[in-house]
């Protein structure tokens, strides 16, 4: 018995890798559509704030991520934009991550098309600008001076959407979808703290726990954490999409890991027991 336990304890990593691959592929090829998920308070914070805005209010989104974080943040971007457009908010979007420009643009134009929104009137995409904190401070001082032209080369002072928006002070809500640094903390330190707009966040599940202190103090009013958060948002909107499909995969892989950990502890106890007897 102890021998077997010992062998299993020193299991080749590659067998675990294979198990994980199987746990991902099976639900991907044959989704089981697990029942609905509960909504956490931080996700609701973002949702409620957008819900409370009136048509014509301005939502500012910064999509600070690159394609590596796509599985988690892309569905979030889609959901938030859907929510905003369905409420007829005006949406301004940008990114602080140069490699993220293409994807941010894709998210924006895709959802805008879905809701038949007009560019320049209902939404605008500012694109990317070098300088990180320079950009944030610049936006806080004078938006049109920081971005004289939008991503497509239109002059921002000619676009209708910017008519009453001179700086970050004039926006009604800002959501930062971030995969790292610069991200939510940067927007807080250089933006919100100075220019006093309401800030919410969406981020990869990795950084989410670290942002809880900020959440509790109200430095950010809500937080969508990882694919799970995105799936919650999809549930809130009643529009199941990619993130909800991903929930199946998360369930199988998590259960696999939990099973492995429990097994390894049982083996471990068996081997240890033997030792104490001896």
């Amino acid at each position: 018995m102890r021998k077997i336990a010992n062998i299993l304890l020193n299991l080749d990593r590659r067998i675990i890798f294979l198990l994980i691959a199987a746990a991902v592929l099976v639900p991907l090829l044959r989704p089981f559509n697990l029942p609905g998920i509960s909504i956490s308070q931080p996700v609701k914070g973002v949702y409620d704030k957008i819900e409370s805005l009136a048509p014509g209010d301005v939502l500012f989104i910064s999509m600070d991520f690159d394609p590596t974080a796509k599985p988690e943040l892309y569905p979030m971007g889609i959901s938030i934009l859907r929510h905003a457009f369905s409420k007829d908010l005006r949406v301004i979007c940008m990114t602080l991550w140069a490699p993220g420009v293409g994807m941010a643009e894709e998210v924006m134009s895709k959802v805008a098309r879905e809701y038949h929104k007009e560019y320049g009137k209902d939404y605008a995409f500012l694109g990317w600008m070098p300088g990180q904190l320079t950009v944030i401070i610049g936006l806080g001082q004078d938006l049109k001076k920081t971005f004289p032209k939008d991503f497509y080369g239109n002059k921002t002072d000619r676009l209708q959407i910017f008519e009453n928006i001179n700086s970050l002070r004039d926006i009604d809500y800002m959501v930062d979808l971030a995969a790292g640094d610069p991200g939510i903390e940067t927007w807080y330190l250089y933006g919100k703290e100075k220019y006093g707009f309401e800030l919410g966040g969406g981020c990869t599940a990795v950084i989410a726990p670290g942002l809880y202190p900020f959440l509790q103090t109200g430095q950010i009013n809500g937080l969508i954490g990882g694919m799970r958060g995105a799936a919650e948002y999809e549930t809130l909107l009643n529009r199941k999409d990619k993130a909800t499909v991903g929930m199946d995969v998360l369930s199988t892989t998590h259960f696999l890991i939990i099973g492995l950990v429990i097994l390894s502890n049982i083996f471990y106890l068996i081997t240890r027991k033997g030792k104490t007897v001896r």
Partner: peptide, 26 residues
């Protein structure tokens, strides 16, 4: 407890990434 909780929380993030990759592969 904090490290354990973060580990568990992150597991989700990493699985999401793998899901994204496998999605493309399929």
């Amino acid at each position: 407890i904090s490290f354990g909780a973060s580990f568990g929380y992150t597991a989700m993030a990493r699985m999401s990434l793998l899901f994204g990759r496998c999605y493309d592969l399929t």
